[in-house]
Design a protein around this nucleic acid. Structure first.
Length: 561
DNA sequence: ATGCTCGACTCAGAAAAATTTAT
DNA sequence: TATAAATTTTTCTGAGTCGAGCA
């Protein structure tokens, strides 16, 4: 079994064979009748300029294309692709008219939807062929699914939030950009005809199969294995085992940081307050970021004075800290938290004589914090607290919310509520679905209809009972029984709908999947399912069952995180 | 020691695609 | 029963974390 350690320190595999990546399809120029207009006049673009223009045209309905930075970055990069003639003509983006191009793409996608069954089937088969050929590799003795075997196509960079590089051109990746990683004794993948790989290497200290440099941030991108693979699953399992080790010593660590709030050293106090936030609020570590290269977001260690407000008293509570900042992916974190007096006093001290844009923890960074954590427990880092607190919260909430007498849908509602508690803790949010209001109304009208149906069924039952009382024969007794069953069935259906409505309403802006996939020890969920006889499919879909296969056959109903 | 950069990996929500349900 | 709408699942790729290596 792969759960057992089989590799020497740092060695990730002994044998690795794969077919290399799938490249983005080449650009297909627009048909002659699709026009681009500049300053009201038709203009035929060179192929390169046209390709980049289509990227913009395809996004025309998106809010991005109205943003100043997006337009500026796009225009700058687009001009680099133009011929000198085009460059001298096209000098103002506002005079460019992409609407015809945009309409053409909309018509295309409409046509795609209207394709016949046979055509759709053909495309499906082609995708399956591609997956079969390029979607798998052999790592040691297993055939494993590859996560992202397709190279990202060229396009316009879309950052999250207020990203300074939004709209820049993401260039096309060629075989000459690609580094292949595989074992020496494997069949080396062949580059496309007429091309060469940048490099072929044989590094079994890393898990990736393919890498390339990306031109926006200058970072490296990788092709790696699917979460269902041994190499990812084993790592995932280890992550939860580390979090369980933290469970054993978390009380000691908490006592320690509470002591440190009183330390003579500023650095130690800051470390202790930051750790308290990470533990209590499940904040991310907060590495420093290069200014101007990315959106302005922060985590715990990079919090600035402007991100918190101190309220000696607020709404009847003492010592309230009000957090308001943008975290990962520019998701807003807003929270009012009552804290211990010592924490409050320390925060006042840290903020003394500082400007709003100054660091709150000026003597602290993630490296200092993680070094300290390493001393407290082997393998302990800031993110382990998130995993630990998420998993322990799920376990405890499940214990609290599961009612043994509930039916399966009600128990699943309890599960979702426990999951939701974790998502809220971790601040996993989503944009409310576009159709949310409408979908709630539909559900409500279904509930109303069901209620009426129930009332009818009850009336029928009543009259059947009266009838049976008079006639006192077998046949009318049977009628009563069947009417009773009908009422019960409808009651159950109604209840199911009401549960669904509650669940959906509570879930409006909460994203459950991130915590489910990355923070909750799956063995807790598996054990809960076993304990209450809930089919695992009700909790995990196919992908999730594949990812958590290790937990599904490992955990028994008495598993404790 | 310390700080900085880079590489490799995990984690993140949006969007597209597939599937299910309603009409 | 075909089509459209709603919902769920999968894909996509950007955004973090964290440790190693180097000056």
């Amino acid at each position: 079994r792969w759960e057992e350690e089989r590799y020497p320190e740092g060695i990730k595999w002994k044998f690795l064979e794969h077919k290399g990546p799938v490249f983005a399809p080449p650009y297909e120029p627009l048909p002659e009748n699709v026009k681009f207009y500049y300053d009201g006049k038709v203009m035929k673009l060179s192929t390169k300029a046209e390709e980049v223009a289509t990227f913009f045209a395809k996004m025309l309905d998106h809010e991005y294309t109205t943003k100043e930075i997006f337009r500026k970055n796009f225009f700058k990069d687009w001009r680099k692709e133009m011929t000198s003639e085009e460059k001298s003509t096209i000098t103002n983006l506002s005079k460019c008219d992409f609407t015809h191009m945009s309409q053409y793409f909309k018509a295309q996608s409409e046509a795609r939807k209207q394709m016949s069954k046979e055509e759709k089937q053909k495309i499906k088969e082609e995708n399956e062929r591609l997956l079969k050929e390029y979607g798998y590799c052999v790592m040691d003795n297993h055939k494993e699914r590859i996560a992202n075997f397709k190279i990202e196509p060229p396009g316009l960079f879309r950052g999250r939030g207020n990203h300074p590089k939004m709209g820049m051109l993401k260039r096309r990746i060629m075989p000459e950009d690609i580094i292949i990683n595989c074992s020496k004794d494997s069949k080396i993948p062949a580059p496309p005809p007429g091309h060469k790989w940048k490099e072929v290497r044989h590094d079994n200290k890393v898990t990736w199969l393919v890498s390339w440099n990306e031109n926006i941030q200058g970072s490296i991108k990788y092709i790696m294995l699917n979460p269902s693979s041994r190499i990812k699953g084993e790592k995932d399992w280890q992550k939860y085992e580390t979090a369980r080790r933290l469970k054993k010593c978390v009380d000691k660590i908490r006592n320690q940081y509470r002591e440190d709030w009183k330390s003579k050293e500023m650095k130690v106090r800051q470390r202790a307050v930051a750790l308290y936030f990470i533990d209590k609020l499940a904040l991310r570590a907060g590495n420093e970021k290069e200014e101007g290269e990315t959106a302005d977001t922060v985590g715990c260690c990079s919090l600035r004075v402007e991100h918190i407000k101190l309220h000696p008293e607020l709404d009847g509570q003492e010592y309230v800290v009000e957090f308001d900042f943008l975290g990962k992916d520019s998701i807003r974190y807003y929270n009012k938290v009552p804290v211990e007096k010592r924490v409050f006093k320390n925060l006042q001290l840290f903020m003394e004589n500082k400007q709003p844009e100054d660091d709150l923890f000026d003597r602290l960074n993630t490296s200092i914090l993680n070094k300290h954590l390493q001393d407290l427990m082997e393998g302990l880092t800031a993110k382990v607290f998130r995993t630990y607190n998420a998993s322990i919260t799920l376990q405890q909430q499940l214990k609290e919310l599961t009612n043994p007498d509930d039916n399966i849908p009600a128990k699943i509602l309890s599960y979702n509520r426990a999951n939701r508690a974790v998502a809220i803790l971790c601040n996993h949010q989503r944009a409310p679905p576009k159709t949310f209001e409408k979908s709630m109304m539909n559900l409500q009208s279904k509930i109303d209809a069901k209620k009426e149906q129930l009332a009818d069924a009850r009336r029928e039952l009543k009259s059947a009972k009266a009838d049976a009382k008079v006639r006192r024969d077998e046949k009318s007794k049977k009628t009563v029984e069947s009417k009773k069953k009908a009422v019960q069935r409808i009651e159950e259906q109604l209840m199911k709908l009401e549960v669904q409505a509650t669940d959906r309403e509570e879930n409006k802006q909460i994203a459950l999947s991130t915590s489910k996939l990355n923070y909750l020890d799956p063995r807790i969920s598996v054990a809960w399912c076993k304990k209450w006889g809930i089919p695992i499919e009700k909790i995990y879909n196919k992908t999730q069952r594949d990812k958590f296969a290790w937990a599904i056959d490992m955990a028994e109903e008495d598993y404790e995180f």
